[in-house]
């Protein structure tokens, strides 16, 4: 029983990281139709920037995020303006390939600046163990789960009630009609990239605080892909929930089936989902997949 609880708890923690990264994917996919293969690299780059800020100014967690998030949004905006905007009107597949190239470039830049060696980065989060329902947690783990909960709620409210959020869904539903009511589609795309980069930075910092800050952080982007598929590509809230599900499944596989299966299990889920419910748990049915 204790073993199961432990597995579930650590599954929720890594699942929360997947969920956050997947939310970033979904946000961009929903409003622009592009699968951003550089999302994992965005997570890595923003985490490293946050690390530099942390080691320079020695901030605690919340002030650190207060600085990190705007910088990340600026990076998201810059990437969109420089690499995605000029591709407007090209086939979606071409834009997706640009993000693949972007991923490699960002990875290279990060290693060039910060080097290949891992850092310990606690992001100003306390390190005393907290016991919750008999299960010990590090505060960083709780921060990660908390961040997912807060961002899911905030994301839902934003898409449901704010004008900008509704406009984002409107653009996703019908781009021409959105233009015809005076929504600037390119501005919505830029906002999607900014918000997605902001979520990426939160995911990156908290992931690094839980594990370590190393140049293989970008790989979490791919690891989150099962969550994106399960959540249904275009459902921001769905990917958050799916992240948790994938995290727990991975841990249960590791605990009960076999060590090596942890990495694979998520992708087994992808295969099953694509066969049974290709639009995911929460996605819209008529989605073209890249």
């Amino acid at each position: 029983m204790d073993f199961l609880l432990l597995l579930l708890a650590s599954g929720l923690v890594s699942g929360a990281a997947y969920g956050l990264i997947a939310m970033g994917f979904a946000l961009i996919f929903k409003s622009t139709g592009v699968v951003n293969f550089a999302q994992g690299e965005l997570v890595m780059l923003t985490a490293y920037i946050s690390f530099t800020l942390y080691s320079t100014f020695d901030l605690s967690f919340f002030p650190l995020m207060l600085v990190t998030i705007p910088i990340s949004m600026a990076i998201g905006l810059a990437l969109e303006r420089l690499f995605i905007r000029p591709m407007l009107g090209e086939p979606i597949f071409a834009i997706v390939m640009v993000t693949v190239g972007l991923a490699v470039v960002l990875r290279g830049i990060t290693i060039m600046i910060w080097g290949p060696d891992p850092f310990n980065f606690n992001a100003g989060i306390p390190t005393e163990v907290v016991e919750l329902g008999g299960v010990p947690f590090y505060p960083a783990q709780l921060y990660l789960i908390g961040a997912l909960a807060v961002l899911t709620a905030a994301g839902w409210a934003f898409l449901r009630f704010s004008r900008m959020g509704i406009a984002m869904r409107a653009v996703a539903a019908n781009e021409t009609a959105a233009l015809l009511v005076g929504i600037s589609v390119s501005r919505i795309h830029a906002i999607a990239w900014m918000l997605s980069a902001a979520i990426a930075s939160i995911a990156g910092v908290l992931f690094a605080a839980n594990f370590k800050l190393a140049p293989d952080l970008w790989f979490q982007g791919l690891r989150s892909f099962p969550a994106v598929i399960l959540g249904g590509m275009d459902s921001v809230i769905g990917s958050a929930v799916a992240g948790l599900v994938i995290g727990v499944i991975e841990n249960l596989f590791q605990g009960y089936v076999g060590q090596g299966l942890r990495e694979i299990s998520g992708f087994i889920v992808i295969v099953i989902v694509l066969m049974v419910r290709p639009f995911g748990l929460f996605g819209s049915r008529d989605i073209e997949r890249v």
Partner: peptide, 29 residues
């Protein structure tokens, strides 16, 4: 649109995943 030139497109072209009221609110964007 800001100058007051609006169009009802062919085949309605609603934001089909949005509610009726959300569609209208977007019209007043």
């Amino acid at each position: 649109v800001r100058r007051g030139l609006l169009q009802v497109p062919e085949g309605r072209a609603l934001f089909s995943t949005l509610t009726v009221e959300e569609n209208l609110v977007m019209g007043g964007f």
